[in-house]
Amino acid sequence: MVAIDANEVSKRYGTLQAVDRVDLTVEEGETFGFLGPNGAGKSTFINMLLDFVKPSHGSVSLFGNDCQGEGVAARSRIGVLPEGYSTFDRLTGRQHVEYAIRSKAADDDPIDVLDRVGIREAADRKASGYSKGMAQRLVLGMALVGEPDLLLLDEPTTGLDPNGAAEIREILREENERGATVFFSSHILEQVEAVCDRVAILQDGELVALDTIEGLRETMGGGTKLVITLDRLEDGTLETIWAVEGVDTAVATEESTVEITCTNDAKMDVIVALHEAGLDVLNFRTEEASLEDMFVEYTGAGR
């Protein structure tokens, strides 16, 4: 069964095309990463799934229920960590979870939920006094109530330190093993790389990539990154490298170090070309291209 189905969905605010004909299907059981720089339209897309925002064109559905026409049914099987939320002014952490339990007609124990997200000791304090990270944990806890079939999380690790982010990823992994579909957005790539089966990259409201991480690597010139240290760097050196067939990018990072992304087969050709140009290769190593490199490649960030 399909958990999330977006059908050519668009949202326009005046002259700004926030989301532009996004076609996307997330199957049940997947962990799906929704990537893009800030302002790419990720939250607008998620807000359409939650019916906070009405699409200008197209439609979105969760488990076959149209998010606008059958919003309550669409939201009945999901747990949400929305964007730009604030906690309820005067309620304690425990009362927040109780609201979630009552809203979903679930029978979880509030303390167990708070324990799982690591804020048990703050259960009876007003949530308005929580730090950003604690609030994030609280709302994640509310999302976990009632064993939802889909977790929809907008930038879940915002405000958390690396340890906290790792704890959250662990919870997401557990939920996925339980059978839940996990869909989360992020502009931080390593988090997505670590847990996701598939990723989509959104740029200026458009879907620019939709693939598995391995698939993206393959598309990206075999996914090899070559870091070469030379005895010296001359004016024409980068041009020499670019001239080699199979080279995608070549960037001088330090005085005499060059980072190259290329197909696997081109690696030796690069070394040979440099040698022929009269340069000594002092050291070289290869790395698997990280998603970061691909992300930069796709979205043009940093170019």
């Binding site: 309550v72 730009g84 979630a100 709302v139």
Partner: peptide, 17 residues
């Protein structure tokens, strides 16, 4: 305006509810 409505309505409640 504070954003707690996003939290309130992310649950299966309609706006008329």
């Amino acid at each position: 305006t504070s954003g707690s409505l996003h939290l309130t309505l992310s649950f299966p409640h309609s706006r008329s509810d």
